[in-house]
């Protein structure tokens, strides 16, 4: 039965793209969660919907359009946040509601696209094209490479931004690079979990790994493990049970999070006795 699953071309495309996204999302997620900036993933996912809508309206690849749109918006958010003209969270609210409004207007113009839109909203591996796989792999590798390149600086800034500044680390520039990488990760995740569930893919595996209370490197490893397992199982289950891929993946992640939470609570109780 499993063999037949791997024989479908679209399944293989979905799996390839899914694995890249599963590996890249926690790399970004760990820094977002620890900097209390998880909401930006949600904001950028709504921004990406505008890109999807524009792509569908203009007849260009919606994922590519979402990537361009999300990266531009991420730079706008960072600039607005740095200017201190509005509070950081308010900047996110501005972009979230603004981009959603823009997407709704664009989608009302592009009538008859509802079936495709459903796939982009909730994720479906059927929508993953060969171009998507290529784009996701190249950009996913770029995100991972840049996170590794700036790894020690990102850890330092996340833990203690002021000391990182005193150490001569160009904090502002690295923050800009990081927000662009976040935008890329969000846009790349659309075909797998859909616009509405991207934030969960980025945040939940990290929250699960954080319950294990271990070193930074190991926390990343466990978040990766949780992410890869949930995406792989979620795709297989959603295929056979005919369920929405994104929803299945996120429910599995939540199940894993709850299980780890319970086990750790029991271990603490045993330890305190």
């Amino acid at each position: 039965m499993i063999v037949s699953f791997f024989h479908y071309g679209f399944i293989m495309r979905g799996l390839e793209a899914g694995m890249v996204v599963a590996l890249v999302a926690p790399l970004i997620g760990i820094f977002l969660v620890l900097r209390r900036y998880s909401l930006i993933a949600d904001t950028l996912s709504h921004v990406s919907l505008s890109g999807i809508a524009l792509g569908m309206l203009l007849g260009i690849n919606p994922v590519l359009a979402a990537i361009v749109f999300t990266v531009i918006a991420s730079l706008g958010i960072e600039r607005l946040r740095m200017s201190k003209k509005v509070y950081g969270e308010s900047a996110l609210a501005l972009f979230l509601s603004g981009s959603l409004a823009f997407a709704i207007v664009l989608l009302s113009l592009a009538r008859g696209m509802n079936a495709n839109l459903f796939n982009y909203l909730f994720g479906s591996i059927v929508t993953v094209t060969t171009t998507d796989v290529f784009t996701i792999t190249i950009l996913g590798a770029l995100v991972a490479a840049l996170v590794f390149l700036f790894y020690k600086e990102l850890v330092y800034i996340t833990f203690d931004e002021e000391s990182a500044l005193v150490a001569g680390i160009p904090v502002k520039s690295i923050n800009v690079v990081f927000i662009v990488l976040t935008a890329l990760t969000v846009a790349l995740s659309i075909p797998i979990v859909g616009v509405l569930l991207i934030a969960a893919l980025i945040v939940i595996p990290v929250l699960t790994a954080l319950q294990l209370r271990t070193s930074f490197v190991r926390t990343i490893f466990y978040a990766e493990l949780c992410s890869v397992c949930a995406v792989l199982l979620g795709m297989i289950i959603s295929f056979y049970a005919n369920l929405a891929t994104g929803g299945t993946i996120v429910l599995l992640m939540l199940g894993l999070f709850s299980a780890v939470l319970l086990v750790m609570k029991q271990r603490r109780q045993i330890g305190s006795q």
Binding site: L34, F159, D160, E162, A164, S215, F216, R218
Partner: peptide, 28 residues
Amino acid sequence: GYVPQKVTNFDINFPVTVEEVALMGRYA
């Protein structure tokens, strides 16, 4: 070298070991 005021006021749930914290001092 710099030891900031918030030494006693950082996120105690941050997943970082003593060795990882000390290693940050080498980054500059």
